[in-house]
Structures are given as structure tokens and as C-alpha cells.
Design a protein around this nucleic acid. Structure first.
Lengths: 186, 186
DNA sequence: CGTTACATGTAACGTCCGTTACATGGCGCC
DNA sequence: GGCGCCATGTAACGGACGTTACATGTAACG
């Protein structure tokens, strides 16, 4: 990829993360990136392809970061808590927030954003499922874990209350451990 | 309120529920309602005030429906399950989906939609908190319950899988009951 | 030096947007 | 019948949008 184009992708990621994507338009994005709408079209072909490239980049970057953190969990800490700490870190949080917005918009307008949903939802579920201890490796349990994470993350996005949402997650982990009488929940 | 205006609010609710609000524009809405953009502005003053009126109507209607169902829970069923059945019913689901979209958009663009967040999030939390048995009446527990509900609902919105999300909720209720050794979770 | 390819600037196109100006209905009231 | 008020239709405004046409710069290469 041309180096200039790469810079533009970086700038676009920064702009999207800050402004959301529901009302994205080229001219303000271009101004923020120090270029012009003309050049964005020149480099990417169309707004749609620009979005595709930017979001794909962001998604794979987050996936890589996620894989890295999933390898190195703290002792005595449930994987769910490891992921939570990663998700709410200053580096990951804004990007994840953007991807949750994408998820919602895709659900309401699949003809515009549907292509970003195909992999994502099922992949995450399967990933969580295989991380579960075999005795609990059910669709219901995996779905529940994903939902707890998603729900708390969105609560955090809405209210900004890191402490309360983190305590709620800890409470969940405690409840699961109590229910099975010890062990490490995912 | 003028009867014609009331009809327009109804039509707008139907349109919004179907098309989402991220890219709402007056002319298609007017066409679907059998009128013209001119008349929408005439009756409501501006697009913004139309949205305010429509969303307020929708919110208070859902709140009333919620209160009604919260009074009449099934025996042996956790309140959370009662609300879930209500939420995924054909009548409530599309409206709730719209309000979740509103929530996300408000988080990304508070200057446009922020006014809809002030009451909502804190109110729900407090409502759930007071419904909890005193021993568990903590912010963490209330936050967790709200998050489980929200997370599962959004998973349902994204995937449409009623069975799996409902089973996940049942699994959660089972886990909570096991953790406390019987009783009725909220 | 001339050519070629990529990069960029300026300006416009056509379309949609929310909103407004202006004219015209219908309908009760004096 | 005239008058006023609410409702409505037609058409336009100014502005933003994604995109394009066209000209110009710049730098590498023969």
C-alpha cells in the first residue's frame, strides 16, 4: 500500500474513533486528515471502499491485540476479567466503542453494514465456547458470557462509570464460582 | 393535540421502528405517512422537535407497558425472565430495538441525542436495584442484571436467535439461584 | 529535455437535505 | 356573503453531500 494511503487510513481511524460513523462525511474527515475529499476518493475509489478498508484494518488490529492479551492472563483472574481490563484500557476502549456502534448500525441497516457482521458475531461466540471448560461448553453459557461482556461494555460507554461496571463483572465471576463451587470461570 | 398530528406521530413511530433513526429524513418518512415534508414541519416545527415528540411518546408507551407486565409476573419465574419474555414479544421488540439504537447514537453524539440518556440509564438501574431482595441490593448486582439483559437483547438483535438467547438467560437465572442456594433472583 | 505516472488543487455536477415563501383550499362565524 | 384560520400543495432556497472533469504540479526515467 502506498505510504500516503497508509497515513490516511491511520488518520481516518483516529477521526472515526472520535466522531463515530453514523454521520461520517468526507470533507470534515479530509480536513482532519490534512487533505481533501478529492484525494480520499482518489486513493480509495469511493467512500464505501474507504470505510471498508479502515474498518477492516481496525478490526484486524483489535483482533491481534486481543489474541496477544488472551495468551497472557493474570493468575487467579478469570479470562473474562482479563479481557475486560484489556477492553477498557485507554488504547482499546475507543476502538471497541466504534465497533459496537458498527454492530448496532449493521443490525438496523444490513444492506449498508451487513458485511461486517458475518464473521464477527459467530466467531466470537465460537472463540468463547472453546475457551470454556468442557463441562460448561454449551451455547447457552458462551452466549451468556458474551452478553455479560457486551452489556457491561455498553453500560460503560453510556455512563462512563468504570468502577461500577468493573465491580459488576467481578460480582458475576464470584457468582459463577460460587455456583460451581470453585474453579476458574471463563 | 390535533388529531392529525397524533396520526402523524403514530405513522412516524411505525416508520422509525422499521427504518432506524440514524439516517432518518423527512421526505421518505412523509411519503410513508401519506403526507409531505412540508406538513411535517408545519405540524412539528422542525425535524428535531418531531423526533423529540415521537421518541418521547415511544418511551413513555414502553414504560407503561413495562410497568403493566412488571405487576403480573408468572409464578416460579424470575422477574428477569418475565421482562425478557415481554421484551422479545412481537409487540415490544421492534420498539426496544429502536431505543437501543438511540442509546448507542446518544453515546457517540451526545450533542444530538444526549437528552434521551439523562433519565433512562439511571432510572432503569434504580428500578432494578429496588426490585432486588435487600441482601443483594448493591449497585454491582443491579448493574450486572441490567447488563445481562442488555447484552442478550443486543445479541438477539444481531443474530435473531431467540432460542439461544433465551436459554442463556435461563442459564444465568440458574447460576444465580445455585450461587445463593435457592430463592428468587431479580 | 521530453515523456510518463502519480499526486494534488479548483471547481463544478447532480442529488438530497431541512426549511421557507407563497398561494390556495375548506370551514366556521359574523 | 365576507372574513379569518387552519390545513395543504407547489416550488424553491441555501447548503451539504459523494463524486467527477480538468488542469497542474512533481519527480523518476529514457
Amino acid at each position: 500500500m502506498a505510504p500516503r494511503k497508509h497515513e490516511l487510513v491511520e488518520a481516518a481511524i483516529g477521526y472515526l474513533v472520535e466522531h463515530g460513523l453514523a454521520d461520517l462525511s468526507l470533507r470534515p474527515l479530509a480536513a482532519a486528515a490534512g487533505t481533501s475529499a478529492r484525494l480520499l476518493i482518489y486513493h480509495f475509489g469511493s467512500k464505501e471502499r474507504l470505510l471498508a478498508e479502515v474498518l477492516d484494518t481496525l478490526q484486524s488490529r483489535l483482533r491481534a491485540s486481543f489474541d496477544a492479551v488472551s495468551a497472557a492472563g493474570q493468575e487467579g483472574e478469570a479470562p473474562l476479567q482479563t479481557f475486560w481490563k484489556w477492553a477498557i484500557s485507554r488504547r482499546s476502549f475507543p476502538s471497541l466503542r466504534l465497533l459496537y456502534e458498527l454492530q448496532i448500525l449493521a443490525a438496523q441497516k444490513p444492506e449498508s453494514y451487513g458485511r461486517y457482521l458475518e464473521r464477527n458475531s459467530r466467531d466470537w461466540l465460537e472463540l468463547v465456547r472453546t475457551a470454556l471448560p468442557p463441562a460448561e461448553r454449551t451455547d447457552a453459557m458462551a452466549t451468556l458470557l458474551v452478553a455479560v461482556f457486551d452489556g457491561l461494555f455498553l453500560e460503560l460507554v453510556s455512563t462512563g462509570d468504570r468502577r461500577r461496571t468493573t465491580e459488576a463483572l467481578d460480582e458475576f465471576v464470584r457468582i459463577v464460582r460460587r455456583a460451581r463451587g470453585g474453579g476458574t470461570p471463563a
